[in-house]
Simulated scan of single mutants.
Amino acid sequence: MNLSTSYMGLTLKNPIIAGSCGLTRTVDQIKACEDANAGAVVMKSLFEEQIREQDAELEQSLAMHPEALEYLRADIDMRYGADAYTEAIAKAKQAVSIPVLASVNCYTSKWWMDYAKKIQEAGADALEMNIFVMPADFTKSAADIEAVYVDILKAVKAQISIPVALKLSPMFTSFGNFALRLERAGVDGLVLFNRFVQPDIDISSLQTTMTPSFNDPAGFGRSLGWIGLLSGQLDVDLVASGGIRDSLGVAKQLLAGAVAVQVASALYAKGLGKIQELLNGLEEWMEDKNFATLDEFCGNLNHINSPRPETYVRAQYLKAYTNVE
Rank of each mutant, 00 (worst) to 15 (best):
M1A: 08
N2P: 07
T5Q: 03
Y7D: 05
L10G: 01
L10I: 00
L12Q: 03
A18G: 07
G22Q: 07
R25K: 09
D35P: 11
N37T: 07
G39H: 01
G39C: 00
V41R: 06
L46T: 00
I51W: 01
R52I: 11
P66V: 08
L69M: 14
R79Q: 02
G81C: 02
A82I: 03
T86G: 05
A90D: 03
A90N: 02
K93N: 07
V96T: 09
S97L: 11
I98P: 01
P99W: 03
V104S: 10
C106P: 07
M113Q: 15
K117I: 09
K118F: 02
I119M: 03
I119V: 03
D125C: 04
E128V: 04
I131R: 08
P135E: 09
S141N: 11
A142Q: 10
A143D: 14
A143R: 13
E146Q: 14
Y149S: 07
V150W: 04
D151S: 15
I152G: 13
V156R: 07
I160C: 03
I162A: 10
P163I: 01
V164W: 09
A165N: 06
P170Q: 10
S174K: 11
N177M: 09
N177T: 15
V187F: 08
V191F: 06
V191L: 09
N194D: 11
R195P: 02
V197I: 12
V197W: 14
P199I: 08
I201E: 09
S204D: 15
L206K: 11
Q207N: 11
F214W: 12
G221T: 12
I227N: 06
L229V: 01
G232N: 12
D237C: 02
A240R: 08
A240P: 05
G242E: 03
I244Q: 00
A251H: 11
K252R: 15
A258Q: 00
V259W: 00
Y268A: 04
K270A: 05
N280F: 10
L282E: 05
M286P: 10
D288P: 03
F291W: 11
A292L: 08
L294V: 01
E296V: 09
F297P: 13
T311E: 12
R314D: 13
L318M: 12
L318T: 15
Y321R: 13
T322R: 15
